[in-house]
Design a protein around this nucleic acid. Structure first.
Length: 481
RNA sequence: GGCGCGAUAGCAAAGCGGUUAUGCACCGGAUUGCAAAUCCGAUUAGCCCAGUUCGACUCUGGGUCGCGCCUCCA
């Protein structure tokens, strides 16, 4: 039985989807005005892992991750760049897809853009107004009347009183309550047509919180299973989403709220405002994308994750061990042909399908499964992978190697040709494969002639060029350090 | 100030009321011409103070420190 830590309950709970065998999941995606940083990478990878595990567990999953393509920052950036909103957002959506693809993140089933859901948003505002939860203020903005919604604060565990006590922003006299938030932002003079839409409250654009509520319920229904995002979205964003959706639809919005921990640098949250962020593409210049993915999945999704070169190097070394084990055994390909995944029972007797054609009765698979079922405990699941690697190295069993590759595949890891991972790409200015082969041949000749001094010299020279040689029973192999 | 989360060996990071986490590093051995890789073994833990218990890293209370949210943020 899968257990999920539900922020709403502050506890791990048994996961039961609303519809048997079908899971509907929404994750807050990016605001596209710049390149994604490692914090974004973590959300994408973490929920990709969740998506994959639900599928491997036999569920049909509808996964929605939105794109915020209208927002103050976008407008500001477009103006600075003297480009249109559309050009700017499209550019960064493309960049985001490149980054996500590199990290092995599967595309969500739907990727709605806020600007395509304006009618649904307006409809929601109208419904909220009708339900007495929204009002148009003197400045033209339509606000949500927080104190009219019973249960405001149930996700973040904050009461309105607590929130007011900590109020740090200047009180906006147009609001009935300082905590009221904007649903529809009234257009200001001089704003481009591109950033305003007609509505019965006048021209304007949607508030950020409204976007997710409208897209979520339009694509997944008024009540769905899982809603995820970074821990910083818990308040106010997700709290406000609940207020909007439940206020408009008069029913429970989401059953399980999941929040991933932050990526930190020097023990501080990585964020735009602190300026201490690394973009995904920056990091990928230095580290293999799979290493980055592995680095993220090695920690539990709710724990903070400190970024540093040392930790990435560490992750690289560990991943190398797994690939080395796969390399040592011939043809560890995925054991079952596609489409025949139903011959094994899936975890907990859920439907038997999906990408994980795994024999779940096998002991490593069982350990892997209970780790993943325990609130997606990937560190524990990864530990199982290492135990399996040890078994592979010890027994040279093709079956174990196949199991290793299959289980790792559920995490989106270890699917490449081991040789390719270990040897990497030719470094600019470094030795190419042909040059390395020539050196290896020369060394083999030297060894045959018992000229070990020469053989060692060649090996040392290669090592200084970042090439590690390994003499095996099958001959000499090499990898990049 | 309010609310919440965390503190595990040199580093990273999990589970668990009593029995090896795991990876990297380090030490010994096997293997190797020597290495590397691999295998076997050893060493290194549980912020502090109380309490519960036959027994606590694991539960309870208090403290200390760190982090986050309360403002856009993944």
């Amino acid at each position: 039985m899968l257990k999920i830590y539900n922020t709403l309950a502050r506890d791990k709970q048994d996961f039961k989807p609303i519809e048997a065998n079908h899971v509907r999941m929404y994750v807050c995606g990016m605001t596209v005005y710049d390149f994604c940083h490692l914090g974004h990478a973590r959300v994408m990878v973490v929920f990709d892992m969740v998506y994959r595990w639900l599928k491997a567990s036999g569920y049909d999953v509808t996964y929605v991750r939105n794109i915020t393509d209208i927002d103050d920052k976008i407008i500001k950036r477009a103006a600075e760049n003297k480009e249109s909103i559309h050009t700017l957002t499209q550019r960064f959506i493309d960049a985001m897809h490149q980054d996500a693809d590199a990290l092995g993140v599967q595309r969500p089933d739907r990727e709605p853009r806020a600007t395509q859901y304006i009618p649904q948003m307006l409809e929601m505002v109208a419904q909220l107004e009708k339900n007495g939860l929204a009002y148009q203020a003197a400045d033209g903005d339509v606000n949500y009347a927080v104190r009219k919604f019973d249960g405001y604060g149930k996700l973040s565990g904050k009461s309105l009183e607590d929130l007011r006590a900590g109020e740090r922003v200047e009180v906006d006299s147009n609001k009935h309550d300082p905590l009221d938030f904007v649903l529809w932002k009234h257009a200001k003079d001089g704003e481009a047509d591109e950033v305003k839409w007609d509505s019965k409250w006048g021209k304007g654009r949607p508030g950020w919180h409204l976007e997710c509520s409208a897209m979520g319920s339009d694509l997944l229904g008024k009540h769905f299973d899982i809603h995820g995002g970074g821990a910083d979205l818990q308040f106010p964003h997700h709290e406000n989403e609940i207020a909007q959706s439940e206020g408009a639809h008069q029913c429970q919005y989401v059953n399980y709220w999941m929040h991933n921990g932050f990526v930190r640098v020097d023990n501080e949250k990585m964020s735009k405002s602190l300026g201490n962020f690394f973009t995904i593409r920056e990091v990928l210049k230095k580290y293999d994308a799979e290493v980055v993915r592995f680095f993220i999945l090695r920690a539990h999704y709710r724990s903070p994750l400190n970024y540093s070169d040392q930790h990435l190097d560490d992750a690289k070394g560990a991943l190398t061990r797994l690939y080395t084990a796969l390399k040592s055994v011939p043809s560890p390909s995925v054991p079952l042909p596609a489409g025949e995944g139903s011959q094994f029972p899936s975890p907990s007797g859920r439907g038997a399908r999906g990408e994980g054609a795994v024999d779940w009765s096998e002991s490593y698979a069982q350990r892997f499964q209970s780790a993943m079922d325990d609130d997606f405990n990937t560190p524990e699941a990864v530990a199982v992978l290492f135990d399996l690697a040890n078994e592979v190295n010890r027994t040279q069993s093709a079956q174990s190697a196949a199991q290793l590759k299959t289980l790792a595949g559920i995490l989106g890891l270890l699917q490449r040709d081991p040789q390719h991972f270990l040897q990497g790409e030719t470094v600019a200015g470094g030795l190419d494969d042909a040059a390395i082969s020539a050196q290896i041949e020369a060394r083999i000749a030297a060894k045959k002639a018992k000229n070990f001094a020469e053989a060692d010299r060649i090996r040392k020279e290669l090592l200084e060029a970042g090439i590690v040689l390994e003499d095996t029973a099958q001959g000499t192999t090499w990898r990049r350090a």
